[in-house]
Design a protein around this nucleic acid. Structure first.
Lengths: 209, 209
DNA sequence: CTAACGTTTGTCCAATCGGTCAAAATTTGC
DNA sequence: GCAAATTTTGACCGATTGGACAAACGTTAG
């Protein structure tokens, strides 16, 4: 099933990277249908026919971008392991996901766009690879619950809530910044979020009587 | 500042509703730029020029949809009140937001699309009306914390986390259903989510020793 | 140096886009 | 029942879309 990577010249490698970088920006903010080849070409500093020399169709760019994304995107969850203290393990998973939202917001938005549109291009991956991985990790978490290491609850929805809360800071960034205002909406917002999320997931909101 | 509603015939009222209903569906899945008037017209069962008789520009449809959305969208937060038990109050806010994700998923996706694209059309509202409302409710929550009714933490990020976790079930619905699979991804997923979120927000994950 | 190969560009195309307009069809007020 | 007002339609417009193509331009290996 492995597609052999075509031989490419130095220029081809560089230009393709340039295009993918530009396309990430454009697709992330406009979605696939809302983005034009001209926009991407301009962002990459080249003419449209030149871009089409490196990627023959608009879909090819998006597909390449998507394949790369999915690998790195699920890496943090793959790292979630049975070794070490469960609460610590979950805490660092949350932290890693939040760091990804901070460092790769465009990738997060690209993914969000694809899901919002009904995931027409990655549905098989969601039902296959992703589901398998989540089920696997849910089993690990269930083990922790049975061992009394963390409170018993639904592991799948726990994973959803971690995805939702962390990716929110990438996908809804403009809203977060607008609501926090210029003072609290600066660079410190990710540390505030990290502190808050840690407390939420570990202790919840009930006051320590 | 109140724009007087133009007089409209019965047909105009009905057809405009029909168009808005169709446009909600189309905009929610394709975004503004990714949607075409033809798509909306076909979904509404009328010809493009006929649609343009009721809304002269594509933007007018989107704007009308957005204005309506924002009122109902923030209603649950407006209801968050200082009367009654704080934990109960928050619990029912979460429940109401989750019910909105279940009952109005297209509205949620429409909003998500707008934010993802940088909120070009509602930025003033985010920085104005929304920020004011959230600041106001954050003050209420801070009062609860000072009174020892709930654990002290960041009220703004608390509100973000409630938005994120609940809207996730509308915006990322296809992913949720794909991961849960045909068995657990059925209609029961919202009750499972409600149970999980209640526990998360009240008690967190730390086991009761 | 030069021939082969890789890269870039301008031009062009059919399809689709948002939107206009006048005429036809329908509904409404009297 | 009829005239006025409203609604619907088909034909059309310029702009933009994704993409094709051959010609021009660079680069590189022998």
């Amino acid at each position: 099933m492995e597609i052999p990577a075509p031989r490419r010249t130095r220029i081809q490698q560089e230009k393709r990277e340039l295009i993918l970088e530009a396309a990430l920006e454009v697709f992330a903010t406009n979605g696939f249908r809302g983005s034009t080849i001209d926009q991407i070409a301009e962002a990459a500093g080249m003419s449209k026919p030149n871009l089409l020399y490196y990627f023959r169709r608009k879909e090819d760019i998006h597909e390449t971008l998507m394949q790369r994304l999915l690998d790195t995107w699920l890496a943090p969850l793959r790292e979630l392991d049975d070794v070490g203290d469960p609460l610590t393990e979950l805490r660092s998973y949350i932290r890693r996901k939040l760091e990804m939202a901070r460092d790769f917001p465009r990738e997060s938005r690209l993914f969000a766009n694809e899901i919002l549109q009904g995931a027409p291009r990655i549905m098989p991956m969601l039902e296959g690879e992703l589901k398998t991985l989540v089920d696997e990790k849910a089993a690990v978490i269930k083990g922790w619950m049975r061992a009394g290491k963390i409170a018993p609850t639904d592991p799948w929805h726990l994973i959803f809530s971690i995805w939702a809360t962390t990716q929110h800071y990438a996908d809804f960034d403009v809203q977060v910044r607008a609501v926090l205002g210029p003072d609290r909406g600066g660079d410190g917002r990710f540390e505030d979020a990290a502190r808050f999320l840690e407390q939420l997931f570990i202790d919840g909101l009930k006051p320590k009587s």
